[in-house]
Nucleic acid binder design. Structure first.
Length: 569
RNA sequence: GAUUCCGUAGCUCAGCUGGUAGAGCAAUACACUUUUAAUGUAUGGGCCCUGGGUUCGAAUCCCAGCGGAAUCACCA
């Protein structure tokens, strides 16, 4: 048996696997294993002599001749188990202990244990094994961090790339990572509970949309073969939820995976989760009350306290939260009053504040720039910023007291937006005009302006009750609740560049030389390239064909000329 | 997109102004019946990210590429 591509340890594990089979032990048995106990529970409720059956991965082994200790990790945590040779093998044949346990089991293997709970001389709650079963063999060594007596972790599995690419390993060896995702699920459950208690209904709306509406963002595009039309992955679900309010539901919500074809960094992933909820007969003032109650409830459910530590900041999600109008906020931090100012005045003001602005920006975008540049970052504690300019909020109702503003708020935490809410625009004529303004912005060069959804307008024309809607960035919220500065840490499988993007093609020496020549020139005449190599026609032919077949270079015609060019990733 | 830093054993990392590749853990072998970062002794394990260049000689210096991280820009 030779495995040239495997590491020494992997080869050894495969050999162990082989030997186990020879001993008549199935390394991947089919039968269920009758687990009736968990590590954490055994340790919490210690009962001397209690018979238990548990299963998990073996993560450490301390062999001392005829006795050994091992650690088993199950879904609840870790527990030490004690193997005594003569208890495992009461008869003459000691193979099960000497061979199977000591040699053929490896760290990372899943085993099942039956035995009695006891305390060792040093006081560690352990299980005295009377019977063990191999449940699944692990063929790759896990990176196993160790914690010393001082609590210092050695050999921690910390490389972010490896951790994200092999999250399954990360979860096995890094307990704190598992905890983040447990909290994530708790957050979702807490929100559902809060909404369901109010009688609101969880719904599902299309992810594949013919018109990507409800937000301003570049969508991912795909194609439906049967209908032969382009379809877009949703950037938001807002317009569909509102259609359901038109249809007569009083409260609907959805945890929506949204997709945006934009940059990736530590706060942006191309797919992310938003929660959106729409409640009929409410306005944004009601929604502020509702939001602060909701977040207080969620913080408590996730962490058991409304206080959350985020980096250097201590945040308190206890309601109520401060409410500041956008105009007041800009006055507070810049001394500039945006009320009644023209586009030119705003642009001049923004420039004087050292902000980068250009001609495509309308008043809304300019105000947004000023707020984003000078104010936003200052709100550490949860704060509602209210009354956004009309131009920035095409789906939001005009403010009851000021026609240049809208009834909108965003909730800022640690200088970032975590929630966004409106008194929803339900005047179909106004809505159509707003969409048309967006279209004009688009023509002006704003590539994020919204598309017009005619069917949505039609639904409004049938009448939508006054409604307030709220959207929450779930990923961002869980970042705050688990003190993680990057979104990758709160997504099981964050988007990564595919592994090994470089073509792994094995080229022979001639092909390599030709390829290098093309690499250097990027593009050149085929004949010229041919002349540079003193090789037979046949070798030339096969070489250039290898390169083109593997998509390293391409040959193409430009008029009468045959050219060859480098294909770059 | 810009800048900075990083890529060495299965894991975590060291390797100075160029001179035969190192440690701990993990692995293998032996000893050891309540240990706990178990211990003791011995052994094996490397395309030093890839490709060029400089040099008598490159893990080390230079260039390019690939991959990653951080900061900034962009992004409701």
């Amino acid at each position: 048996m030779s495995h040239p591509e495997l590491s020494e340890q992997e080869i050894q594990r495969r050999e162990s696997l082989h030997k186990l089979r020879e001993l008549g032990i199935d390394p991947y048995p089919a039968a269920l294993y009758p687990v009736d106990a968990f590590a954490a529970e055994i340790k919490e409720k210690f009962e001397d002599g209690k018979q238990v059956c548990l299963a998990g991965r073996m993560l450490s082994q301390r062999i001392m001749g005829k006795a050994s200790f091992a650690e088993i990790q199950d879904a609840s945590g870790r527990i030490q188990v004690y193997f005594n040779r003569d208890e495992i093998c009461p008869d003459e044949d000691k193979t099960l202990y000497n061979e199977v346990f000591k040699k053929l089991l490896d760290l990372g293997d899943f085993i099942g244990i039956k035995g009695q709970v006891f305390k060792t001389q040093v006081g560690e709650i352990s299980v005295n094994v009377t019977e063990f079963t191999l449940l699944s063999k692990s063929l790759r060594p896990l990176p196993l961090p160790k914690t010393d007596a001082a609590g210092v972790v050695h050999d921690a599995f910390t490389d972010p790339e490896l951790r994200y690419r092999q999250r399954y390993v990360d979860l096995v060896v890094n307990r704190q990572v598992k905890d983040v995702f447990i909290k994530r699920t708790r957050l979702f459950n807490a929100m559902r509970e809060f909404f369901n208690r109010e009688g609101y209904m969880e719904v599902e709306t299309p992810i594949l949309q013919a018109i990507p509406g409800g937000a301003s963002a570049r969508p991912f595009i795909t194609h439906h073969n049967a209908l032969d039309i382009p379809l877009y992955m949703r950037i938001a679900n807002e317009l569909y939820l509102k259609r359901l309010i038109v249809g007569g539901f009083d409260g609907v919500y959805e945890f929506s995976k949204n997709f945006r074809n934009e940059g990736m960094d530590r706060t942006h992933n191309p797919e992310f989760t938003a929660m959106e909820i729409y409640v009929a007969y409410k306005d944004y003032n009601w929604m502020m009350d509702f939001t602060e109650q909701l977040l207080e409830h969620c913080a408590l459910a996730v962490n058991g306290t409304t206080i959350a530590q985020f980096g250097e900041h201590t945040i308190d999600f206890k309601a109520p939260y401060k409410r500041v109008t956008m105009r007041q906020s800009i006055i507070d931090f810049t001394g500039f009053d945006i009320k009644g100012k023209s586009e030119e005045e705003l642009r001049a003001a923004a420039k004087s504040m050292g902000l980068e602005v250009d001609e495509t920006m309308g008043t809304g975008k300019l105000i947004d720039e000023i707020f984003g540049g000078k104010c936003e970052g200052n709100y550490i504690q949860p704060t509602f910023i209210t009354d956004y300019p009309k131009e920035m909020s095409p789906l939001c109702k005009v403010h009851r007291d000021d026609p240049t503003l809208t009834e909108r708020f965003e909730l800022m935490v640690c200088g970032k937006e975590v929630a966004n809410a409106y008194s929803e625009l339900n005047d179909p004529i106004d809505q159509r005009e707003r969409f048309e303004e967006q279209l004009k912005l688009q023509e002006r060069g704003d590539d994020e302006a919204m598309f017009i959804d005619q069917d949505f307008l039609r639904s409004l024309e049938y009448g939508m009750p006054p409604t307030s809607g709220l959207g929450i960035g779930m990923d961002r919220l869980i970042m705050y609740l688990t003190n993680n500065p990057s979104i990758q840490e709160v997504l099981f499988f964050p988007q990564m560049r595919p592994e090994k993007s470089a073509p792994k093609v094995v080229l022979n020496d001639t092909e390599k030389e030709i390829y290098q020549k093309i690499q250097a020139e990027k593009q050149l005449l085929l004949g010229e390239l041919r002349a540079a190599f003193e090789i037979s026609n046949k070798l030339w032919d096969t070489s250039i064909k290898t390169l083109t077949k593997n998509n390293l270079v391409s040959v193409f015609k430009d008029g009468e000329l045959l050219l060859v060019k480098l294909i770059e990733e």
